[in-house]
Design a protein around this nucleic acid. Sequence first.
DNA 1: TATTGTTATACTCTATAACTATA
DNA 2: TATAGTTATAGAGTATAACAATA
Lengths: 165, 165
Amino acid sequence: MGDRPLIAGVPPDLADHLGFLLSKLGTATRRHFAEALSVIGITARQFAVLMALGAREGLSQHALGERLRIDPSSMVTVIDDCEAAGLAERRPDPKDRRRRAVHLTDAGRSRLAEAQQVARRVNAELFAPLDETQRAHLHQLLTTLATTGPLSSLGSDPPGHEESK
Amino acid sequence: MGDRPLIAGVPPDLADHLGFLLSKLGTATRRHFAEALSVIGITARQFAVLMALGAREGLSQHALGERLRIDPSSMVTVIDDCEAAGLAERRPDPKDRRRRAVHLTDAGRSRLAEAQQVARRVNAELFAPLDETQRAHLHQLLTTLATTGPLSSLGSDPPGHEESK
DNA sequence: TATTGTTATACTCTATAACTATA
DNA sequence: TATAGTTATAGAGTATAACAATA
């Protein structure tokens, strides 16, 4: 083409739009994480669940779904897969027999540690173009967006749209 | 839920990861744009196609797909829909009868103008939490990421996909 | 033989609705 | 009546593969 766009897949006029840049970079980021995590056999959603369980074990599926904005029926599948992979297990909740308390297995804990390492590595790779100061600044700007204004309802309105492969 | 996470849908430990923030914000941004554009009856992909045609009319479907990183078979559907909505039309290319030159209709041009206005409005809304200086800084940081390093291959896994035409 | 566009198909991810078993 | 979990299903959205027309 005669006039090459500065950024692949983004028409030049759109590259001016912060929103389009953010959207495109978000997609590319998600893909990088998903690919790296798939190497150790988990999805981004499973990672999120493992993280949540690592912080507080024994959460019900419902509670997990609320925290991570994952639909209850989707949560079934996620936990099914975690359980099939031997990373988590459902246990009866003696206080409410409707509930299934989800716990990490030992394998789940070590896989979680592995995944965190992968995430740190990918993070370092993706943001290598920025120096320490720039990364800190970017983090601060993104946090502002994630906590204030229309983008602060991150996963809510339509209760879906998490990160995934 | 005793300890609510600072950012909805993001476990606190993950909020430290620039990558997760970027991924989440990208998703939320995309949703906002998609919703706003749906009000005027087009999808984000159609918008991208209209933008590309606005910059250079008469592109072949193949050329459009290369620019926007849209698969040829998907492009068929996108153009079908644009055509059905009266926004674009396929014309024979006298130089190569395999090709269909895609042109905007008058309705397409005015819809494009409308969509650009919508995009500007959404952009202003989403980034209202940041002041002018911060927005400029964010734009610069994101552009760096979009042009350097692993995130610069924005729309495609196949890395060898440069312009040729 | 390669390329452009097309069709038909499959796949991924996720949500919706209806059902069960508890509460 | 309401809630936690499950099942079955459907819908986006997109990609893959085979094919026809043309180069």
